[in-house]
Amino acid sequence: MASDLLSRVQPLIAALRRYARGMLRDRDAADDLVQDCLERVVSHWDERRDGEDTRQWVFAIAHNLAVTKLRQDARRGVHVAIEDVDESAFMASPSQEHRIRHNELMRALDTLPQDQRSVILMVSVEDLSYAEVALALGVPIGTVMSRLARGRERLQRALDGELGRMARPQGAPVLRRMK
């Protein structure tokens, strides 16, 4: 059991840290969340349903913890001011220009409601399928797709606002609903 647990969850830890950081921004808070998540994974490993996808199950736990944490923070009025954000939380970008762009992106991401942010992160960065995200979040696939579309649209608008003309060579193509 333990070797199974190890071989299936170990490869997910890096992705969990990345997802948690994307959701919470703060490095320590994100690692706290991942630790909490892993403890739950270890203690409930035997209670998984047969055939349940490990990645989707683990992400569901991480997501629920992130939502709880964000709600608590909102209730307590905890707010990470943009100036306070540890720049190194998103460091290691190859160049200064990239770093600025990445910081702007994270700022833009911060303006999204958490349900849109989590779907965007799971799909765009973690490569979960729409079906996996739907199961992890406990919502219908249609909801995942509409959150994704609304979230990306909003993110693009926020990015265009942040970046202005400078970073987008031939004017930012703005996404519009096609129907």
Binding site: A14, R18, G22, A92, S93, L105, L121, S124
Partner: peptide, 8 residues
């Protein structure tokens, strides 16, 4: 998004 978060 991927490049901003990949380093983590």
């Amino acid at each position: 998004l991927r490049s901003a978060l990949s380093s983590i």
